[in-house]
Amino acid sequence: MNKVPTPPTPPPPPALHADALTVTRGARTVLDHLTFTVPKGRVTGLLGPSGCGKSTLMRAVVGTQARPTGTLTVLGHPAGHPALRSRIGYVTQAPSVYDDLTVRQNLDYFAAILLADRPTADRRADTTRVLAEVDLTPHADALAGTLSGGQRNRVSLAVALLGTPELLVLDEPTVGLDPVLRRDLWHLFHDLAARGTTLLVSSHVMDEAERCHRLLLLRDGRLLADDTPAALRARTGTDTVEAAFLRLTDEGRAPARTQETLR
């Protein structure tokens, strides 16, 4: 569990600001008037049950979700602004890498796209760095398709770390990893945050929630809470974020049901 340092004064502008953010997919309202702020240089966890809209929210932040309404400002620009493309690192839920290329060839290609203006030596250095950060240096010359699921996940993560983006949007980056690797990755996330990177990490593993500076709890496309883990536990009078989440879900369930029948 991490101590949450008090933010310096005056607070810097937030990395992310959403106001009445709504996404409709088909006939479903997947995100329903979300209003929240994500501070810079912090690890913010996006938690919630399967299907609650975590991936949709992340796509909205990255700008690959169609038809969002409301306001969503990312690093001072409206979400999806072309200027943001080199400033955000994004890991999709399913690892998105080329199975028929080696790990290094994957990284070389994405580095060439992202860092097209930098000299080749710089790009090489960057790929070597991210390989080490996700602990895949020994597998650099293996075909991505021959790696285990957790290893491919980490290749996908390594691609997102290229070019040291200001904002990292990670959709369940630790799924399928053993406890040691998970701990190491969370150390990496905290290192990155300490160096000023903003992280938005989704998960449905509640013990990971305790490692976040701030939490956004989502259920059925609505925001249940936007707080620090400690404040959340205190507010609900529980010992763990998991218990707090269950408490909030139970409290939210009754009114949600009545609204559904009203519709």
Binding site: T64, I88, Y98, F110, A116
Partner: peptide
């Protein structure tokens, strides 16, 4: 495979 989504989120 999602690589297209990734590429189009990059400056390509």
């Amino acid at each position: 495979s999602g690589t297209l989504e990734r590429l189009l989120a990059l400056p390509l």
